[in-house]
Nucleic acid binder design. Structure first.
Length: 554
RNA sequence: GGGUCUGUGGCUUAGCCAGGAUAGAGCGCCGGGCUUCUAACCCGGAUGUCGGGGGUUCGAAUCCCUCCAGGCCCGCCA
């Protein structure tokens, strides 16, 4: 309804003003939609914008196509208000299961996220990638796109060689109950310490990398074993965060099937290619001073080479490629995009996010300086369990535990997704453990509250009559939900949905405190119950799109 | 040094790309509200040179220039 009306008003304003861009935006507190076109016309027509706005409003008001939309000028602004019929329509739409979902679209999208090196557990920096990526993935599915989510598994990098070397040369037994990825990290950290002590080990590592590149069966097997072990742990963490990937793409496969050789051959034929002892691409004409090296002097490929092969493959199999990458990949990502274009291949769209650091400095798997995602989940779930136990001692322990788990994931995911990706952040335990107002649990609570009212109400006859300020504000906000989903996938900014859901919970809480539902009667009661149901459904759809469980009770 | 992102009340943050209606929130602080649909809640109050300076514009947190501060990148690592 909202988007339809937006476009309708846009067309009417175009016809009325003759302008292409009619500056139509959400009107905030003032209106459902508002235009500032009068300012622009004031310059052209040399008339005060107030007069122009008044003229436009008057002209449009006479148009029967406007239907239930009231138009008025407020100073230089042209404001549009949805009338009762449209608000009723918005609520009617919002109670439908799957509200905000779009019809199936044809373009196939591949989204890559997380793709952390399998040399240790995911830490609080990695999961910023995970949460942004998974929220985007869910928004894309909701927006109707056929989507495949991939994890690109760096299974032949230096880090993995170090892990493999560690397993072969250091006697480090796995501890009782130790998670696979944490065990691998211990081996990796220990191996790095050995290398620091004996720098000549580096040559052994180089040899391992050459062997794996040639496809030496024994070395390949050892690498795979180490990677698979670590991946088991990583997947468990992802699952705990409500995240799943459709496909794990092994980097070494591109070497094995010859794609890396093929892409090297194509790069060599580029006018920008330079071959000395290495092969590199000169991208200085595009503003990159840095050499884009694709083959080492010992003949082995580098990460960038395999990445080029990977994206060539993706580009040919999907209509759109989206990568979620840390800001440290900005340079290499831009070089990848340019080189793919030179090769006549499709470049990926890249969503960058800035770094998460610890109060004491940046994180490092190698130095063992990180807060793992598992540790974070455990701590937050523990706090949530205490909280649930205080509030709901009536519930059996098993249920309290399951609620605590959901609440913990909500707190963690929401905390991450609510912040714009371009902001670098410092991990803060106090904030992570906060379940108050700008948090995931706060939104879950509003949902549970709506469920509780509906449960107590039992059967009712839907009605759509709204009069109070709280009712109207809620209905207006509900109407915007599909437009928010659309905006998230167009701008690739999932935090917009986080803000939307929080605003909806805010409005619902205010409504809850002022407008009694169960104690009202007749049509008012039915209308309010219908509104509560619409809020419940829209909160549920919002939360699920954010990968957060919509709890019915908490 | 070059590139890039960020700088908004004590702290965290929205708004910035597509300039317009009194710069929204949360935490913390002060005060009020549970015999009333779950108080993980609600209401009121104090707190802001939107990093500094210049410019463009009828109008700048938003665009441009410049300076300052911080993160990240500038490997034959990934």
């Amino acid at each position: 309804m909202y988007q339809e009306k937006y476009h309708q008003i846009e067309r009417m304003l175009r016809a009325c003003t003759g302008e292409e861009d009619v500056l139509l935006t959400t009107g905030g507190d003032h209106a459902d939609l508002a235009s500032t076109i009068a300012f622009r016309l004031a310059k052209k027509e040399k008339r005060p914008p107030q007069k122009i706005a008044a003229d436009i409003a008057e002209k449009l008001a006479g148009n029967p196509d406007l239907g239930d939309i009231q138009v008025e000028s407020a100073g230089p602004y042209v404001n549009f208000h949805f009338g009762p019929t449209l608000l009723a329509e918005a609520v009617r739409e919002a109670v439908e299961p799957g509200y905000g979902s779009f019809p199936r679209r044809s373009s196939r999208v591949v989204l890559e996220h997380t793709s952390a090196n399998p040399n240790g557990p995911l830490h609080v920096g990695h999961i910023r990638n995970t949460v942004i990526g998974d929220s985007l993935a869910r928004a894309f599915r909701k927006a109707g796109y056929p989507l495949e989510v991939q994890y690109y598994l760096n299974d032949m990098g230096r880090q993995i060689a170090i892990v493999s070397w560690g397993f072969d040369h250091l006697e480090i037994p796995r501890r009782e109950g130790e998670k696979e990825d944490h065990y691998v990290a211990r081996v990796y950290i220990a191996a790095n310490r050995e290398i620091e002590k004996n720098p000549e080990i580096t040559q052994e590592i180089d040899l391992l990398m050459q062997k794996v590149e040639r496809g030496d069966p024994d070395t390949v097997k050892k690498f795979r074993k180490a990677v698979s072990l670590c991946l088991e742990g990583i997947r468990a963490t992802l699952a705990a965060l409500n995240v799943s990937h459709d496909r794990f793409v092994w980097e070494s496969d591109f070497v094995r099937i010859g794609d890396v050789d093929r892409v090297i051959e194509r790069v060599r034929r580029l006018p920008q290619a330079v071959e000395d002892e290495t092969l590199w691409v000169d991208l200085s004409e595009f503003g990159f001073e840095k050499r884009y090296i694709l083959r080492r002097s010992d003949g082995t490929s580098v990460y960038s080479t395999r990445d080029l092969a990977y994206h060539t493959w993706k580009g040919r199999n999907y209509d759109r490629m989206i990568d979620v990458l840390g800001a440290d990949h900005k340079l290499i990502g831009a070089q990848l995009q340019v080189t793919l274009k030179l090769l006549g291949e499709k470049p990926p769209e890249i969503v960058f996010f800035e770094f998460v650091s610890l109060p004491e400095g940046s994180m490092s798997t190698r130095a063992g300086k990180f807060v793992s995602a598992d540790e974070l989940i455990e701590e937050v779930a523990g706090k949530a369990f205490e909280e649930v136990t205080t509030r709901r001692p009536d519930l059996p322990e098993e249920e309290r535990c399951s609620i605590a788990r959901s609440v913990a994931i909500a707190a963690i995911r929401y905390d991450i997704v609510k912040v714009s990706p371009e902001k670098s952040t410092v991990f803060d335990w106090k904030e992570a453990l906060d379940f108050e107002r700008q948090s995931g649990p706060y939104i879950q609570y509003a949902h549970a509250r709506a469920c509780s009212i509906l449960e107590k109400a039992g059967e009712f006859e839907p009605a759509y009559h709204y009069e109070t300020g709280h009712e109207i504000a809620l209905a207006r906000h509900l109407a915007r939900f599909p437009a928010v989903i659309e905006q998230v996938v167009v701008e690739l900014r999932p935090h917009l949905l986080a803000a939307y859901a929080r605003d909806l919970a805010d409005l619902f809480n205010a409504f809850y405190h002022y407008d009694p539902v169960l104690k009202s009667e007749g049509e008012i009661r039915n209308s309010r119950l219908t509104l509560v149901d619409a809020v419940r459904n829209t909160l549920k759809e919002s939360l699920e799109t954010l990968g957060i469980d919509a709890l019915r009770s908490m």
